[in-house]
């Protein structure tokens, strides 16, 4: 089987840079969307079990400045190749900067159609956008089924059995490839590659694609008129001296003054 993992290189929300109410997107580092590491791990395990013949990574870059991000992406994607993926495709084009999930799904579907696929795995959502829309969007565009929020995956005799973690229940569902699977963080513990694996990953291919290469033209349907930081100013008063009793006393004093204790 040919297995794909869709990975988002998110903005690292723990390292956001601000200037007043502006988020300095261009200066904020990227980070592999945490849950997509679980997706890569699951794909690599399929390969180790002899189910997947080839594991390919696909990412669509969303953040400026494009030239620097391509370099940054290379370093990040190498980590995933070191985990055991075989190759990667990075789609980078100015027309994709700050576009919405629908655009991601259009681009990803075209790359998948051009290359062939059996199982497409991705994280349930990204840490920055958190819409969780891309897996089902791609499934619809490819005309194949989708199972979302999967915390257990088995492939046996061509039957894909998953355990889906929904709000009020857990479903066990059978399906057949080709299909799209979105996974939760509980599905596995992503491996940390060894030094040798990291070194070997340098030789694995990363293919850089533009929209021209995949014959896609984007009409922006969502017009982003502005992005403003949510400014929460916290007082940041740290109580770190005195005995335990004194610290507790001090805290209660502050909270009483703020009128938040009943």
């Amino acid at each position: 089987m040919r297995v794909w993992v869709l990975v988002k290189l998110s903005l690292d929300t723990s390292q956001l840079r601000f200037s007043g109410d502006r988020i300095l997107i261009e200066e904020t580092p990227l980070r592999i969307n945490d849950i997509d590491r679980n997706a890569v791990e699951e794909a690599v395990r399929l390969k180790e079990r002899g189910i997947a013949k080839q594991v390919s990574i696909l990412t669509v870059l969303k953040y400026p400045p494009l030239k620097d991000r391509v370099k940054e992406a290379d370093g990040l994607i190498r980590q995933l190749l070191a985990m055991g993926a075989d190759e990667a495709y990075v789609v980078a084009d100015d027309a994709l900067i700050l576009t919405d999930p629908m655009v991601t799904s259009i681009v990803a579907s075209e790359v998948l159609k051009a290359n062939g696929y059996d199982i497409i795995i991705t994280g349930e959502a990204s840490i920055d956008g958190y819409s969780g829309q891309v897996p089902a969007m791609i499934a619809a565009r490819l005309g194949i089924p989708v199972v979302t929020y999967v915390k257990e995956l088995k492939v046996d005799n061509g039957i894909v059995t998953v355990r889906r973690d929904l709000d009020n229940e857990t479903q066990v569902v059978d399906s057949r490839a080709p299909l799209v699977v979105s996974v939760t963080r509980e599905i596995n513990m992503p491996r940390i590659p060894t030094v040798i694996q990291i070194r070997l990953a340098i030789k694995k291919p990363i293919k850089l694609l533009t929209l021209n290469d995949i014959n896609v033209r984007i009409n922006k349907v969502i017009n982003v008129k502005g992005i403003k930081a949510i400014q929460v100013s916290r007082r940041g008063i740290i109580i770190d001296s005195g005995s335990v009793e004194e610290k507790a006393e001090k805290l209660i004093e502050y909270l009483t003054k703020d009128n938040v204790l009943r």
Binding site: L11, T13, L16, I23, D128, Y130, V224, K228, A229, I230
Partner: peptide
């Protein structure tokens, strides 16, 4: 942006 911004 991980709930840190409002987008219009």
């Amino acid at each position: 942006v991980g709930n840190r911004a409002i987008m219009e």
